[in-house]
Each structure stands twice: as C-alpha cells, then as structure tokens.
C-alpha cells in the first residue's frame, strides 16, 4: 500500500497508529530495563567488588579505581586455591549426583501418579508436600549424630541423601504435572498402528516427556546448588564441603583481615553456571515453574 493512494485523514490515522505502536514499544523497553537493573544490580555490585584490592574496599564507590584480578588469582591459583577448588568440585559433583538420582526416582514416581491407579497415591503426594515444607534446621542435629555413627559425616553421600529430601518433592510435583499433560492416547494409537509397546514408548512418549524431565533437572540442580544449612552442618573438611559453606573459610592476608575480595570472586564464579543455565534454558525453566496447572 503506498501513501499517495490514501486520503490525508487515512494517512494521519496510520501515522498515529504507528506512533502509538512505537510508544508502546519504547514503554516496554523502559520497563524491561527497569526490571533488568533491579534483577541484576546485586550481581553487578558483587562483580565490581570482586575486582577491588583490599585497600579499595572501603573507598565508598561502586566501581574499583584500579580493577585488579588479584582476588581471582587468590582463589584459583593462590593460597585459597585448595579450599575453593575442592569446594567447587564437591558442589558440582554432589549437586549433579543428587539431581540425577532425584530426577530418576521422581520420574518413576510421577509416572505412577499420572498414569496408574494405586492406593496411597494421595499419601505420596501429601508426604512430598510436607517434606518440601519442612524446616531443614530441625533435621541437622539428628542427622549429624546418625551420620557420624554410620560413617557418612563429611562424605559425599552424607550430603547427597539429605539433598534428595530437598529435590525429590519438587521433582515429583513438577513431573507429575508435566506427565498429566502428555496425551498418553498417542501411545495406544501408535500401538494400533503396529508399533511394539517399547517402540511406542520410545518414539512417542519419550520425546514428549523429555523436556519436562530436563526442566525438572535444572530446577533440582538449582536447589541442591543453593544449599547452605546441610553444607555447614554435615561437613568439616575439603572431602565434602560445598561452596556456600566454604565461603565462611576464606581469610584475608591474616586471620583478622576481611576476606571480602576473595568471597566476592568466589561468589561470581559460582554464579556463572546459574546465569548460563538461565540464559540457555529460560523458556524451559519458566515452563517448568509454571507447569503445575493451577485450577481453582
């Protein structure tokens, strides 16, 4: 459509519509920027702090005057290397194992809940809800006593097992919601079309279920990665201490000097995986967190 065929009124109307659209667009960008600043500001703040030297920490400014990577050197190749890298390794290993176990067990459990009729189904769901609401602090003392008597104190399994109590309920609820939305009739349809049950399951159901399982894994990983209470209570050496607990072990050049810089650098490093996962899988995570259909 070219302009010269329009009456002046029509042209004016179209210009106004275009301007209105542009204004909405500008408005949305403003809102987006406000939200982004709100969400990213503390991360930016600790990022800036991580590049300050000990002398600059009290300069009262957001940015360092002379950015220095000395804090990163301290934790990656310097004195705190052993402390931080072993904690990072523990955190990664323990969180991934706890996530995998939780997702496998929760997949079986959620499949049963979504597809089968069995007595006690309601109990399984209620119990997992109770578990997810449980105050973790109430568990640490008895677990500490039990763990040390059976040799699980300060070991990977000693953290993986309690992490399951954090990750399983969420995984079960999220997956049950996902599985209830899968059109299971397709499986029967495929079998009618001549596929074996296994083929039908693999070709039809697995592709439908996989995104849900994957999303659940990311959410479960976040939860295990976030743990602090179990980390400080059930470990005592580099053998199993995860990163959030290890941050309390950093020190400055002497025991009295604040380890602000080293903690900030370590904080940034453990935030990188979170930011990467969020950037790559934003759609899946939002879908997972909003999946449990809310009906009133």
């Amino acid at each position: 459509m070219s302009t010269e065929t329009l009456t002046p009124e029509e042209a004016e109307g179209q210009r106004r519509a275009r301007r209105a659209k542009r204004n909405t667009s500008i408005g949305w960008w403003v809102i987006t920027i406000v939200v982004a600043v709100w969400c990213l500001f503390p991360v930016a703040s600790i990022l800036a702090t991580s590049f300050k030297t000990p002398g600059e920490l009290s300069n009262g400014k957001f940015l360092p005057d002379n950015p220095s990577t000395s804090n990163y050197e301290e934790i990656l190749v310097g004195d705190s290397q052993e402390l931080f890298l072993s904690a990072l390794w523990n955190s990664i290993g323990i969180s991934i194992i706890a996530t995998l176990i939780a997702v496998v067990l929760a997949t079986l459990c959620a499949y049963a809940i979504a597809r089968l009729d069995f007595p006690g189904k309601k109990i399984v769901l209620t119990v997992s809800l109770m578990v997810s609401m449980f105050p973790v602090i109430s568990l640490v003392t008895p677990l500490f006593n039990l763990w040390r008597s059976i040799g699980l104190y300060d070991t990977w399994p000693g953290l993986i097992i309690p992490y399951l109590s954090l990750t399983l309920p969420i995984a079960i609820w999220t997956l049950a919601a996902f599985f209830q939305q899968i059109p299971w009739e397709l499986e029967q349809a495929a079998q009618v079309d001549g596929a074996t049950p296994l083929q039908a399951f693999r070709k039809v159901i697995v592709p439908l279920a996989a995104p849900g399982v994957f999303t659940t894994a990311i959410i479960a990983f976040f939860i295990a990665w976030n743990d602090f209470v179990y980390g400080i209570s059930l470990t005592s050496t580099e053998a199993a201490r995860p990163v959030p607990a290890a941050l309390a072990f950093f020190t400055g050049a002497s025991q009295f000097e604040s380890p602000t810089g080293a903690i900030s650098a370590a904080a940034i490093i453990v935030t990188i995986p979170v930011v990467l996962l969020v950037m790559l899988f934003q759609k899946q995570i939002v879908a997972g967190l909003t999946s449990g259909a809310v009906k009133g």
């Binding site: 969420i170 049950a176 919601a177 997972g288 999946s291 449990g292 259909a293 009906k295």
Partner: peptide, 11 residues
Amino acid sequence: MSSIPTTVPAV
C-alpha cells in the same frame, strides 16, 4: 532459604 518449593501443586 533452604529448600524452595518451586512448583504449584495441582490444585
């Protein structure tokens, strides 16, 4: 925040 119940139970 120790454990985050992240999902909406099916109400």
